[in-house]
């Protein structure tokens, strides 16, 4: 009888332990797509954003995939919406949209990144090497991009979207200097319905990015 009681209590204890330890609250099961996303903004702290008054934006979106050696340009509905949403946000910040031939102060590049099957860590330095926007697009054939050293960026292995603003007025050693960058990560960043809120969040958390 005592032995049975002992065995019973031992079994109960084991069951209790196992069920309690698996009772950990899983953060990923307690999360909407919106909550899964993060927006990382970076800027050149020495840049004077009031010194810029005009900007131009690319006419399509570069798509980087691990499969392709170079970026493809795309203009899906998503891309059109992204271009118009970023344009509107820049105008709200007091910048004037001009054509790229009218010597804009800022150039804005848009990139979608699909590294879903990649474990390569991303640093902006490799953009050039992947056939990213040719600086010739911005009237600077043979030029390049310069990323200041503070642009250390999170490791990536999923879908992302990047907005990069470059100073076209003051090239450094024939390179355009990145002055602002926003990177979107998480579930649904390639979903057209989320564009406006992601653009708004990116600009809202960058109060220095204004001409006003």
């Amino acid at each position: 009888m005592k032995k049975t009681l002992f065995l019973f209590s031992a079994a109960a204890a084991v069951v209790a332990m196992v069920s309690f330890s698996s009772c950990r609250k899983d953060p990923l099961k307690d999360m909407t797509n919106e909550e899964s996303r993060i927006y990382i903004t970076n800027h050149d702290s020495t840049a004077n954003f009031k010194a810029y008054s005009t900007f131009s934006i690319v006419d399509s979106v570069a798509v980087l995939t691990l499969a392709g050696d170079s970026a493809k340009k795309a203009l899906t509905d998503y891309d059109k919406k992204l271009i118009s949403s970023v344009t509107a946000a820049m105008q709200q910040k007091g910048y004037t949209l001009v054509s790229k031939n009218a010597k804009p102060d800022l150039g804005i590049n848009l990139t979608r990144i699909d590294n879903s099957y990649s474990t390569i860590s991303w640093n902006p330095g490799w953009w050039g090497g992947w056939g990213y926007w040719d600086p010739g697009y911005w009237g600077y054939p043979g030029g390049g991009w310069y990323w200041p050293s503070y642009y250390t960026v999170y490791r990536v292995n999923e879908k992302q979207v990047a907005i990069d603003a470059f100073d076209l007025k003051n090239p450094k050693n024939s390179k355009f200097v990145a002055v602002w960058n926003s990177l979107w990560r998480g579930s649904g960043v390639w979903n057209i319905d989320n564009i406006d809120s992601m653009v708004q969040a990116s600009f809202a958390q960058s109060p220095y990015l204004t001409n006003k």
Partner: peptide, 11 residues
Amino acid sequence: QGDVSAVQTRT
């Protein structure tokens, strides 16, 4: 690494 907008879950 910049300004990060996120919903943090701290465990």
